[in-house]
């Protein structure tokens, strides 16, 4: 069953790998563009926007990297999630596979799991590259793109969870709504909704956490050191990730139930 699922995902996996490779390559190139500008100014280690505010191509590279970090996890999720069941319904192949000997709930669960795993892996590569390679340069233009940061929280784990949640959501929408075009359009809504789920969930989870008598570690940094900015939202990102994971488990169960409903 798993081999068939992966075989059916193959074309989408290939595109997802290409997207991942392209995004990763862009992040490396963008990092090197900014570093070049810093080198040219004689400030290779600069982390203070007041000293080395990027201009021209370097600024574009930072904007590009921010946009990439914000959109790639979502795109990867769509790419792997939308065709998962929508295409089966379009081509009526569900009538083939669900009349083999495998129970529908197992088939649906396995498909959702593989799509989520694939989306998460790809998003993890992009997220880690962003955080480790590009992160330190985005600080230089933070004032400008602070809103974009809210879409990825500078956190690989959050990006991974966002991607996986998009994949399973698009998958389940396909299972219920059918039709690739319709599934795609409905799944677009998941972007804002997903963020609301993540942040709303984080707020709900965060209230009890905040009540715990844990002293948050305070960093005593000099006023012109901004390196801490990149990790500023990590705490919030981890709680949001937990919220997304809870959501993923719930939606997979909903999909499982939905797939099995007819077959009872």
């Amino acid at each position: 069953m798993n081999r068939l699922i992966l075989r059916l995902m193959r074309p989408y996996l290939l595109v997802a790998l290409l997207v991942t490779a392209g995004a990763t390559a862009y992040l490396f190139a963008a990092a090197s563009t900014v570093q070049h500008q810093l080198d040219a100014r004689g400030l290779p280690e600069c982390v203070n926007p007041n000293d080395c505010w990027p201009t021209g191509g370097a600024m574009d590279a930072i904007l590009g990297a921010e946009l990439l970090a914000a959109t790639t996890p979502f795109l990867l999720g769509l790419l792997l999630g939308v065709p998962l069941f929508a295409r089966e319904r379009d081509e009526d192949t569900a009538a083939f596979v669900l009349t083999q000997s495998v129970p529908a709930r197992r088939w649906a669960t396995a498909k959702l799991a593989w799509a989520a795993a694939a989306a998460a892996s790809c998003a993890a590569v992009v997220g880690l590259t962003y955080r480790l390679v590009m992160g330190r340069y985005t600080i230089l233009a933070n004032d400008l793109y602070e809103l974009l940061e809210l879409l990825h929280l500078n956190n690989p784990l959050f990006m991974l969870a966002l991607s996986a949640s998009t994949a399973v959501t698009a998958g389940v929408i396909g299972l219920v709504a059918g039709g690739t075009a319709r599934t795609f359009l409905l799944s677009l809504v998941w972007w804002p909704v997903g963020l609301v789920v993540a942040f709303g969930g984080a707020a709900l989870l965060g209230v009890p956490l905040a009540l715990l008598p844990i002293e948050a570690p305070r960093r005593e940094a000099p006023p012109d050191d901004f390196t801490g900015d990149i990790a500023l939202m990590d705490g919030f990102a981890y709680v949001s990730t937990v919220a997304l994971v809870l959501y993923i488990v719930a939606i997979v169960f909903a999909g499982r139930h939905r797939a099995a409903r007819a077959a009872v």
Binding site: L8, E91, D92, T93, A94, A95, T99, Q100, S101
Partner: peptide, 14 residues
């Protein structure tokens, strides 16, 4: 299900 064979209209296959 393992004992029932089904062939849909228009032969649905991948």
């Amino acid at each position: 299900r393992p004992r029932v064979g089904y062939v849909g209209q228009h032969a649905p296959l991948y």
